[in-house]
Design a protein around this nucleic acid. Structure first.
Length: 556
RNA sequence: UGCCCAAUAGUAUAAUGGUAGUACGACAGAUUUUGGUUCUGUUUGUCUUGGUUCGAAUCCAGGUUGGGCAACCA
């Protein structure tokens, strides 16, 4: 009752239908993936839409695998798709397969033949294409178009019986060869494929085409609102035509614009290529826009759902900025992720006036955004690691970190003042020396000083090591699919950086795969399934917003 | 070229004939033991030309631009 969110155009249609008593107000949607690849975030939009609509209007959603092409499909994909939908937080009413309807669809085809609305074609693919004409030139009938009903019935039965080779015959609908919509010019309904199907095995050698399977499957299930993407708009007249001529339940098709995200690709074909050619480590590589990739990267289901809700549902093509997805995950993790300190690019810091060998226990807040987040104990000593970028030999004015003579606070510990440093033969700083102010201890600061900067650290003697994988956008172009040439030439060569030995708080050794943390000042990280008890592996989900990075980039 | 779909700040999205609003971003400031968070403020928009109307982002017509379709893929 609280929010007054306006309805998207599909919700408006559904509400009108309910108001008009269409289907007695019943709402049944379906999510219909072809099991030939892994789900990506574009599918998430469809899932959130279909399942969300049903939830909102007291309906149900079926999961239906559109498995009408045996040569591309596999059970492996079926399993991953189910896992991903569940992970996103949705449960389907029925798990169904278009292949469950092969017998029924065959009967539908026979009915159309009997009505004189379908015929068995002898022509090859090339001949059919040639006879279809062009958008401006009407098609011409092939000789087979005038076959008798009896002959068509006989031939179609023999197609099913396996008397013909692949490509030798097809079943076509008798449409309108002059139709401006090319899909109505005698579209194919069945083709012969002597191929093993992942569910029906070798029972069938003829398989229905999308156009003769999808709408009919919707109808068989009594789907009320069949929601698909924009490219199926030209198929809708066919969808309606089959339903009308078959006189079956009138499911209705509605189309929305698919989700596009900057700096990635969203076509299954391209994603498959990235996997098969080894540009990424697999479908669940954390750089992939797949659901499994995003999950491994550390994205939560809620953040993906939030994105889908924020981008809305429309008919205009769109390109969503990756930044919006990042906003969604930061928004959630800021509230839920415990803060820890991790030094990714370490340099040694020695506190010259802190007694050698002394160890002090300090208290640190786990999450300032969470009152019940609790605290943990940190160990402090005279030798620490800090981030290399947190020290500058000649700091510019706005650099609020450590430098010779500069003061900075060590998070949860003391204020220190930079003194000197050692360099190796190559000019790299090897050790930084600083002094600390004993009266500036966190929680009971008596120093009266305020410093601009606070940096994170770990005690060298107490730190654990971990592998940290830093990810960046997979492509260098905003819209790789739109660029000239091979999209793979636009792959970002620096999309993965592996830090073999980062220093982290020792407590992190107990972290379990999937756990998420904020590495203070560095970003949100989640534990990768590659982790072992000996070596924890972290994936960087997303950086924190970084005002300093922006500021320092200005000078260049 | 034929048919179809679409067009509102940088990106998305609302306003359904009656004050063009919201979010993300950007910019500025305040707060801050994370250059994070939070808070405040600022900036930028109805593709175009006509028409209907007291009144048009919205309806109509023409144009422009972008996208889709012409697979034995889905």
């Amino acid at each position: 009752m609280s929010e007054e969110r306006s309805l998207n155009f599909i919700e408006q249609i559904v509400e009108e239908d309910i108001a008009n008593g269409v289907n007695d107000g019943r709402v049944l949607t379906r999510f219909p993936p072809e099991p030939n690849g892994y789900l990506h975030i574009g599918h998430a939009k469809s899932i959130v839409l279909n399942f969300g609509l049903a939830q909102k209007y007291n309906g149900k959603t079926n999961l239906r695998f559109d498995d009408t092409n045996p040569v591309t499909e596999d059970t492996e994909y079926v399993e991953s798709i189910k896992e991903d939908i569940r992970w996103l937080g949705f449960e389907w009413e029925k798990e169904l397969y278009a292949s469950d309807y092969f017998e029924q669809l065959y009967a539908f085809a026979v009915k159309l033949i009997e009505k004189g609305l379908a015929y068995v074609e002898d022509a090859t693919a090339e001949q059919i294409a040639a006879a279809k004409g062009t958008p401006t030139v009407p098609g011409t009938p092939t000789p087979a178009r005038s076959r008798s009903v009896a002959e068509n019935l006989d031939l179609f039965a023999r197609m099913r019986a396996g008397e013909f080779k692949d490509g030798e015959k097809t079943l076509r609908a008798k449409g309108d060869l002059a139709a401006p919509n090319m899909h109505m010019r005698d579209p194919l309904m069945y083709r012969i494929k002597h191929a093993h199907h992942h569910r029906t095995g070798d029972k069938w050698c003829i398989y229905p085409m999308y156009d003769f399977a999808h709408g009919q499957s919707d109808s068989i299930e009594n789907i009320t609102h069949s929601i698909c993407t924009l490219e199926f708009i030209p198929h809708r007249p066919l969808y309606d035509w089959f339903i009308k001529e078959l006189d079956i339940f009138p499911s209705r098709q509605y189309e929305f614009a698919r989700l596009n995200l900057t700096y990635t690709v969203m076509s299954k074909r391209k994603l498959k290529q990235l996997v098969e050619e080894g540009h990424v480590r697999g479908w669940d590589d954390p750089r992939m826009p797949t659901i499994s990739g995003l999950r491994r990267r550390g994205y939560t289901a809620a953040s993906i759902r939030m994105l889908c809700e924020r981008v809305g549902v429309q008919k205009r093509d769109n390109m969503i900025e990756l930044g919006l997805l990042e906003f969604c995950i930061r928004e959630e993790l800021n509230k839920t992720a415990n803060r820890v300190m991790a030094v990714l690019d370490p340099v040694k810091l020695v506190i010259t006036n802190y007694p050698e060998g002394q160890v002090e226990e300090l208290t640190a807040e786990n999450n300032p955004e969470d009152e019940n987040g609790g605290t943990r104990t940190l160990h402090f000593s005279n030798t620490l690691y800090i981030e290399r970028e947190d020290f500058m030999e000649n700091p510019p004015k706005k650099f609020f970190r450590l430098g010779p003579g500069n003061m900075v606070r060590l998070k949860n510990a003391y204020i220190i003042k930079g003194e000197s440093f050692d360099k190796d033969a190559d000019g790299n700083i090897t050790t930084i020396y600083a002094s600390y102010l004993p009266e500036s201890k966190s929680g009971g600061d008596q120093s009266g000083l305020t410093v601009k900067g606070t940096i994170h650290w770990v005690s060298a003697a107490h730190a654990a090591t971990a592998e940290v994988r830093i990810y960046d956008r997979l492509f260098t172009a905003e819209n790789p699919a739109a660029e000239e040439g091979d999209f793979k030439s636009l792959i970002n060569p620096d999309s993965l950086q592996v830090i073999e030995k980062a220093f982290v708080e020792p407590g992190l050794l107990q972290a379990k795969p999937g756990e998420r943390f904020q590495f203070l000042r560095k970003g949100y990280f989640s534990v990768d399934p590659d982790s072992t008890p000996e070596k924890v592996v972290f994936n960087r989900t997303v950086t924190l917003k970084d005002a300093w990075a922006k500021e320092s980039a200005k000078g260049k």
